[in-house]
């Protein structure tokens, strides 16, 4: 009886120890994605706009860099390969832009990425070589081409390249949960850098009630060539627009429509759809 108990006891202890030892930190991987959602892939329908315009992009180039996932006081993981140019227009679904392996399966509460100026060392993601040259030539962080249509006012095209560096950090998902939960196993956890193209047409910089508008932008087509350039937007002083539109909050030196659209570029970066990040110029 005692002998049996002893064996039983020893087996139990061994099982406990093995059980404890087997409990190492599980790992997983992150499938980093980028997407402009339907607004880029298809169109921003007229129903979204306050003034009846609708917008269809033909090119939406982003230069993405500095993608990093970290846990406060814990490990940090970065997407290697430096800055790359992606065209989000052909992406009907989220575009995989890289995988980070051997990631501790846990919540990584500090997710950040950069929409930064393309440099000579930038490379192509899914964009073409000519797209890369456009981005490098203008040192653009974001380059968009598209057409806006209105049932009464016709169409206007636009081709805008924006410089400047914006870092999106402390990203939270649409449920206001910080960062990303990496699950263990072979299936990679998707993490999506989402770019909200509609933000380029908002009429408020610091206004929760901001609306999408294009009328003022269309009217900026001074030479009537149906193509609205940034230079033409620079000729439209905000003081010529109704006071309730294109409000600037506390932003400095935002005086023209060009300044305005450029300022809005810093708000396009989001996380996993509708999740928000803190923005900072750098």
């Amino acid at each position: 009886m005692m002998k049996t108990s002893k064996k039983w006891l020893q087996s139990g202890c061994v099982a406990l120890l093995v059980g404890l030892g087997a409990c190492g930190a599980p790992v997983g991987s992150i499938d980093v994605r980028a997407w402009g959602e339907e607004f880029v892939a298809n169109e921003i329908p007229a129903s979204e706009f306050e003034d009846g315009w609708g917008v269809q992009f033909s090119k939406f180039l982003v230069h993405v860099s500095g993608v990093r996932f970290a846990a406060t006081g814990g490990p940090s993981y970065s997407l290697t390969g430096g800055g790359r140019v992606f065209d989000l227009k052909p992406a009907a679904q989220a575009l995989s832009i890289g995988t980070i392996s051997m990631v501790e399966a846990r919540r990584l509460d500090d997710v950040r990425f950069e929409l930064s100026e393309a440099t000579a060392s930038s490379t192509v993601g899914n964009a073409s070589a000519s797209d890369l040259m456009v981005m490098q030539g203008g040192r653009y962080a974001l380059y968009v081409e598209g057409t806006a249509s209105h049932p009464m006012r016709g169409t206007r095209s636009f081709r805008w390249g924006f410089t400047g560096n914006t870092r999106f950090s402390n990203c939270r998902d649409a449920s206001s949960q910080p960062g990303l939960v990496v699950t263990s196993g072979t299936a990679a956890t998707p993490g999506q850098l989402t770019f909200h193209a509609d933000h380029l047409f908002y009429d408020g910089l610091q206004n929760p009630e901001a609306k999408l508008r294009f009328d003022a932008i269309a009217s900026a087509d001074r030479n009537m060539d149906m193509m609205v350039t940034l230079d033409e937007l620079a000729t439209v002083d905000l003081t010529t627009l109704p006071t309730g539109q294109y409000t600037t909050g506390s932003a400095r030196n935002v005086n023209t429509l060009r300044d305005y659209v450029t300022a809005l570029v810093t708000t396009v970066g989001h996380w996993n759809g509708e999740g928000h990040c803190d923005e900072a110029h750098f």
């Binding site: 649409a174 449920s175 759809g273 509708e274 999740g275």
Partner: peptide, 24 residues
């Protein structure tokens, strides 16, 4: 099953989630 709407003006609920953990 989280029925609160997602942020950003979306109407869709946050949806179902599951989570599990072990404590020794």
């Amino acid at each position: 099953d989280d029925r609160i709407a997602r942020s950003g003006g979306a109407m869709e609920p946050r949806g179902r989630r599951d989570a599990q953990g072990i404590h020794l």
